[in-house]
Each structure stands twice: as structure tokens, then as C-alpha cells.
Design a protein around this nucleic acid. Structure first.
Lengths: 193, 193
DNA sequence: CACGTCATGTAACCTGTTACATGATTCC
DNA sequence: GGAATCATGTAACAGGTTACATGACGTG
């Protein structure tokens, strides 16, 4: 459900083709809400049917075409309504913590391998998000630049501050996962001794 | 996919009827991996077809029946294999952080409401998990008691320690989410001033 | 003329969500 | 006799995953 609003958030900045949108998506919101291309294109079609966005076919070269999308008034309204509505929180479903609860069922080495992979996984996410934080600070993220270009000066600080706030939360989450898994490694060692 | 192993984890302790399993589930693993009954019963049937568990129909009263399940050797093997295999991490998809990144699009009050709901949400999870931690320490969780009853003394410490470790991770996550949202409230106030 | 990248998907499948459905048994 | 709880699901749908598919354009 949120994919729709992630796409609207990007399109609200200005018209984009599906392809460009997808590119921008993977470089910005995609770090918070992943979606493959095979989901993005159909979703855009659905949003068009619902009147949230409008697409115009453009020619490109001899026979090529591409579809430029822009947000309609209804789409803009839908986005703001979503912002104001309560989120529906998904129930917890965390495979790593599930497995952690039963580590006594396997060997210490296997437990260690699991925890090391957990650390590697979150370190990889962490570096993505820290990179985004750096790009926010340097105002080097192309989406953010586009956004700031159409944002009144008075709102620029807010725009940047909330992006930063969001990524800070993700960075802290990753750091917490890593710290937890490291403690797990120490625990395995202690119990193995 | 993990639902299967969450169910196996419970059944490995000893045979249970679908109904009892479901009860135990909601009181234990369900805090880490939620699933509704409408998913549990069919999954048990599927697992039976795959030979991971076996069910026997028992009569109950005059006409009533219930199905007692126990783990097969293949099921036991499958569980350990899952423990040793790399987890497949889902891509990030976090509606709260997605929304946080665009809070400038709405009013300060709406932003505050969002953050306050976020805090309430995680405080509710937090109290669940802290409760579980207490029950682990008091050895008062019925599933844990059943498990310890069939666990060799040498493994009891490990069994308890890993449960604790898992729930500690969840508790820390909840605390981090709450702290983050509180900082968000402060940020809204600052930007609103 | 080959390769990268522009451009857009379809199809099958799995998992999970929501709402609904039904009857038996036990305990007060 | 009525309520709680035992006991087990089905059906429809939404959302996400994986694999595959296709062709045009631009550049060296």
C-alpha cells in the first residue's frame, strides 16, 4: 500500500517518465521502501486508472515511446490524506529474532555463522543509509536537489531536517542490530566455554 | 516461510493438537512471528503433506475430534537445516520511516500525531516483550516450562539464555523506535517555532 | 554492428490479511 | 440452558517475489 505513496512522493516534485521515476526511486525512497521495477510500472498504471496521476505518451526517436507521468489534484490530495491518516502497523514478523530464540538447537559454530551474517547484512544496510545521510548533508542526492529547487526557502530547512531524521532512525536501527548480534557472539562464546 | 519453522519449534517440544499449538503459539513465538489461526491450520496440513509432521485424529466426547500432531524425523531434520541455512533477509520496507522522510508535506500537528501514534504503537509492543522477558526470568512461560522439562540440565542455561537474548533484541528495538519518535517530536517543535 | 541503457512490462507463485463459518463440548 | 472455549477451517483478496520477455535508441 505504501508503494503508492512512495511513488507519489517522488512525482509530486515534478513530472517523470516511468523509467526515470524508477531510477530516482532506487536512489532515494527505495532505501526506505524497496520495490522492484516489475511492481512499479503496473502500480503506475493502477494509479493512473484511479486518477491519482496522469500519463502522456511521448515519442522518442522513430518508433520509441515513453510515458510521462504527473500528479493530479486528486493524487496530491490522496498523498496529504495518507500523511494525516494513522499508519497501519504490520504485526511483528522477524525471522532473525525468531531464529535467535532457538539457537540452542544448533551448534555454536552455526550460531556464530548466523550472527556474523546478521552483522554483515546490517552493515551493508548501514553503509547505504550513512551514504544517504552524507548525500543529504552535502545536498548531493539528485532527488533532494530537484525537490529543493521547487521548494520555498522557508521550507527548505524542514525538508532537509525530516529526510535526515528518517535516515537517522534507520542508521540507529542498523547500529542496534549490529550491537545486538555482537552481544550474541559473546554469548555463544560464553556458553560454549 | 518462517511460519513453518516457528510451528516446528513448538512441536519439537512434544505433540500438540492444532488448537493447543495455536494457543501456545500466540503465547510464545507469536510475539516474534505473528500468524492468525487461519494461517496456522492450513500450514499444519501442508506440513503434514510434506511429511514434516504427522497428525492423528483423536475422538473427543461423543462426536468431536481433534488432530494431534507430532514432528517426524524429516521435520526435525528440516528444522535443524533451517537453523544452519542463511536467512533470507527481506528488503527494507518501513512505512513509518517512509512517512517520516516527508513530514514537511503536512502540518506540525499532523506530524506530531503521527509520532505520538508511533510511540504508542511501540510502547505497546515493548510492554509485551518486557512481559515475556519477565516470564522468561521467572520461568513462568508455559511453553518454556514444557521445553525445559524435556531439556537436559546441561542445555537449560543455553535454552533460557537464547530466549532472553532474542527478546532483549526486540525490547531494544522498541526502545530505539520510541526514542527516535521522541526526538522527532522535539524536531517538529523546533521547526514549528 | 554490438553493447549499454532506455523503456516497459507479464505471469506464476507465495505469503499474509480479513472476514466469515460452523459445530461440539464443558462448566456453571 | 447459556456462555466460554474447544476445534477447525474456507474464500477472496492484496501485496510482494522471481523469473522471464521484448524491443528501440544511442554511441563507439
Amino acid at each position: 500500500m505504501s508503494l503508492r505513496y512512495a511513488l507519489l512522493a517522488i512525482l509530486r516534485v515534478g513530472p517523470l517518465s516511468g523509467y526515470d521515476l524508477q531510477k530516482q526511486f532506487h536512489q532515494s525512497v527505495g532505501h526506505v521502501w524497496h520495490a522492484p521495477d516489475s511492481q512499479i510500472y503496473p502500480e503506475l498504471r493502477k494509479m493512473e486508472q484511479l486518477g491519482l496521476i496522469e500519463g502522456e505518451e511521448q515519442t522518442r526517436g522513430e518508433r520509441g515511446t515513453r510515458r510521462m507521468y504527473h500528479v493530479t489534484e486528486a493524487g496530491d490530495r490522496a498523498f496529504v490524506e495518507w500523511m494525516d491518516a494513522p499508519l497501519d502497523y504490520q504485526r511483528v514478523r522477524d525471522p532473525a529474532h525468531l531464529r535467535a530464540a532457538y539457537l540452542e538447537a544448533t551448534t555454536p559454530d552455526s550460531a556464530r555463522a548466523f550472527l556474523q551474517r546478521h552483522i554483515a547484512q546490517w552493515e551493508s544496510e548501514l553503509s547505504q543509509w550513512e551514504g544517504e545521510l552524507d548525500r543529504i548533508d552535502a545536498v548531493a542526492n539528485p532527488m533532494l536537489v530537484r525537490r529543493l529547487a521547487v521548494t520555498a526557502d522557508a521550507d527548505r530547512e524542514r525538508t532537509i531536517a525530516y529526510k535526515r531524521f528518517a535516515y537517522e532512525g534507520l542508521v540507529e536501527r542498523a547500529q542496534a542490530e549490529i550491537a545486538w548480534a555482537r552481544r550474541g557472539l559473546a554469548l555463544v562464546d560464553r556458553l560454549d566455554a
